[in-house]
Design a binder for these strands. Structure first.
Lengths: 342, 342
DNA sequence: ATTAGCACTCAAGCAAGGAGAGTGCTAACA
DNA sequence: TGTTAGCACTCTCCTTGCTTGAGTGCTAAT
C-alpha cells in the first residue's frame, strides 16, 4: 500500500502545484514543471493509480487531479520537510519582542502578528487562564488621601490591581498589617481555588478594621472573578479572504465569524496538546465548522500550564511553511518565558 | 430650491425603502407602500424633478430611483428624527458596564460591542493618548527579595507598572526615599513632556544610590515610551459583510483591511470633533478609501482631552438609528467617566 | 394639475454552441 | 512488461443571442 519513488514524486508535484495555484493539476504540467523523464501518458497512468488508492481526486472527468486529504496526510507524515523562517525573520521577531518581555499582552500580540505575517494564514494563540496561577503576594498601597491600591501578584509575575476608597483615618501601617494578613491566609493557593469562604475567614479575623477589610475583600473578589479565563487571541484573520476556496461569501462569513467572535475558535480546537507540531487536515477536525480548514499548532509551557499557538488555513495549505514557522515561534516563546521568569 | 411637502414625502419613502432593500425604488412601490393619494404617474413626474435637482439618481434607464448622496444629506439635515435605543437596551449597556468602571479597557470593549450590536454597523472608539495625561504619583514597591515594582499613576487614575531588579541591600525606606524624589521632580507634568533631561537631573541628584536609580529611570523611560498613543478600537467590522454593496470581494477586502489593520482607520477619520453627532456621507469623506462609506460619530470628553465614538457603514445607512445610538452612548460614556473620576 | 395608456429601454436570466483542457483507452514500441 | 503516441470523448467555461419583466418618459385625455 505504500508508494514507490515515482509515485511519491508525482504526488509531491501535484501537491506543490495545487497549493500554489488552487487549480487542478494535469498530467502535462506535472512533466513540464518537474522534468521527470517520463511522458504525460505515464503520469496519467500513475495518477489513475494514485486516485484509486485515495491520494488524489478529480473534481470532474475532464479536469486535472487535486490532492485528497489523505494525499495531504501522506505527504505531511511521510515526505514533508519543514521550511523554517529565515534567520532575518527570526531576528526580527526577537527584536519586536525584546522591548516587551514584561508586557505579556504585547508579546502575544507580537507573536500573533508575526505568525500571520510570515505565513499569510490566520494565527491563534491560547493563553492559559490566570486563574490557574498561584497567589503570591498582595499589597495595599496608599496612593492618595482616601484611596489605596490593591495589588495582587501571581507566581508567574502577573500583576493585577484595583483602586479602593478607604477612610482617611487608616494609616499606612494599618494597610501593611492587613496586607500581611491576606498573605498569610492566601499565599500559594491557586487563584481559582480561592473561595469566598477563605475571604470570609479573613473577614472574621479582624473585626475592628471591618470596613477597610471589606473594601479590600471586595476588590480581591472582583479581581478574581474578573480575571480572564483562558484567552484566545487571533491575528490575521483577514488572510483567509485571499484564499480562492472562500470566494463564496457565505462560507467566508461563516469562517470569519468563527475567527472573530470571541470564544468560538476555542470550541473548535482539539483539547489535546503535544509539545511537537500537530497538524489536523480538513475532516480530521472534531468540529463540523472547520472541516474545510486545516490546523497547524503546537503547545508551549508557561510555568506549570500549557498554552497553544497555531495557524488556521485552507486544506490547501503550505504545511511545510506553517509547521516550520509554528515550531520556530514555539521555541522563541519558551525562550522569552524563561527570560521573563528569571 | 427647497422641496414641497409632497416631494419630501416621496424622498423619504424612497430613502426608507432603499435603505431597507438596497434596490432601486420604482414609482409604483412608492404609492403602494405609502398610500399617498396620488398615482404612480404623478410620482414619476416628481421623481424626475427630484432627479433633476440632484436628490435622486437612476442606475440605468429602466430601473427605479435611488437616493443620491445629496438626497441623503438633505434628509439627514432637514427631515431626520433620531431613533434612540430602547430603554431596555440602554439599561443593558449600563449593566454591562457597571462592573467594569475601573477597567477602562473593558469599558471600551463593552461600548464598542454595544454600538455594533445594536446598529449592525462597524463601530469605532478613539481613546486619547495616555501621554496627554499628567504624572501624578510614582512608587517603588518591594515585591520580593531583589525585585521591586515601579508604579506610575496618572491624573486620570490610570496605573502603569514595571518590574525591576534591585540589589538586595536596598531597604524599603530607600525605595520610599527615591519615590519621593521622583515625585518632587515630575509631579504635574504631562507624560509626553517628561524628557530624558528631567530624568537625568534626577539621576544626578542622588549619586550614591546610582544603581537603583538607573534601574528605576530605565523602567520609567520604558513605561513612557511604550505607553500607547491614541488608540482606535473597532468592533463588529464583520457587520459590513452583510451589506450587499460589498458583495464584490475586492471591495470587501479593502474595507475590512482598512478596519482591521491597526491605525488605518485613524488616517481616514476627520480630525475635527464636535460634541454633537457628526455625519459624513460618502464623498464628503476626506479619504478616498472610504468614499463609499458613511460615518456617524461624536466626541466625548475625558478630563481635558477628547475621544471619539462612531459608526461606519455603507452610504445606504440607517442614519436615524445610527445617530440616535451614537448620541445615547456618548451620554452614557460621559456619565461613566464622571463616576470613575469621582 | 393629474392620470391612464403605451411604446421604449435595459438588466438579468437562460439556452445553445464553440473552444480548450485534460482524460482514458488502444495499439504500437522497447 | 512497462512506456508512449494518438485519438476520441467529456466537461467546464465563455460568448452570443433571445426572452422576460420591471420601470420609465411621453402624450393625450380628464
Amino acid at each position: 500500500m505504500s508508494l514507490d519513488e515515482r509515485q511519491r514524486r508525482i504526488l509531491e508535484s501535484i501537491i506543490k502545484d495545487y497549493v500554489a495555484t488552487a487549480e487542478p493539476v494535469g498530467s502535462r504540467s506535472v512533466v513540464r514543471k518537474h522534468a521527470l523523464n517520463i511522458s504525460a501518458a505515464t503520469v496519467r497512468n500513475e495518477m489513475a493509480d494514485l486516485e484509486e488508492m485515495g491520494y488524489l481526486e478529480q473534481p470532474h472527468t475532464s479536469a486535472g487531479r487535486i490532492p485528497s486529504e489523505k494525499g495531504f496526510r501522506y505527504y505531511v507524515d511521510c515526505m514533508m520537510e519543514n521550511e523554517n523562517p529565515t534567520d532575518e525573520q527570526i531576528e526580527l521577531l526577537h527584536q519586536v519582542l525584546e522591548d516587551r518581555v514584561q508586557e505579556w499582552n504585547d508579546v502575544v500580540q507580537g507573536v500573533g502578528h508575526f505568525l500571520s505575517q510570515v505565513t499569510n494564514y490566520a494565527s491563534f494563540i491560547i493563553v492559559p487562564s490566570v486563574k490557574l496561577s498561584q497567589f503570591q503576594n498582595l499589597q495595599l498601597i496608599p496612593i492618595q488621601e482616601g484611596q489605596a491600591l490593591v495589588l495582587l501578584i501571581t507566581d508567574v509575575g502577573l500583576i493585577m490591581h484595583r483602586k479602593i476608597n478607604i477612610p482617611k483615618s487608616i494609616m499606612p501601617d494599618d494597610l501593611q498589617f492587613i496586607s500581611a494578613l491576606f498573605n498569610r491566609v492566601l499565599r500559594g493557593k491557586r487563584l481559582k481555588e480561592i473561595k469566598r469562604s477563605d475571604l470570609m475567614t479573613l473577614r472574621d479575623e479582624l473585626k475592628n478594621r471591618r470596613h477597610i477589610i471589606d473594601k479590600a475583600l471586595e476588590a480581591v473578589d472582583n479581581l478574581l472573578s474578573n480575571s480572564s479565563d483562558e484567552r484566545v487571541v487571533i491575528s490575521g484573520a483577514l488572510n483567509i479572504i485571499k484564499e480562492p476556496e472562500f470566494k463564496d461569501l457565505d462560507k467566508l462569513r461563516r469562517i470569519l465569524t468563527l475567527l472573530e467572535e470571541d470564544g468560538q475558535l476555542r470550541e473548535v480546537l482539539p483539547d489535546h496538546i503535544s509539545d511537537t507540531v500537530d497538524i489536523l487536515i480538513g475532516q480530521e477536525n472534531r468540529s463540523e465548522d472547520i472541516r474545510e480548514m486545516s490546523l497547524v499548532m503546537a503547545g508551549y509551557k508557561t510555568g506549570s500550564e500549557m498554552g497553544k499557538i497555531g495557524l488556521i488555513g485552507p486544506v490547501r495549505m503550505e504545511y511545510w511553511k506553517a509547521a516550520g514557522t509554528v515550531e520556530s515561534v514555539r521555541q522563541v516563546i519558551e525562550e522569552i518565558l524563561r527570560k521573563r521568569n528569571s
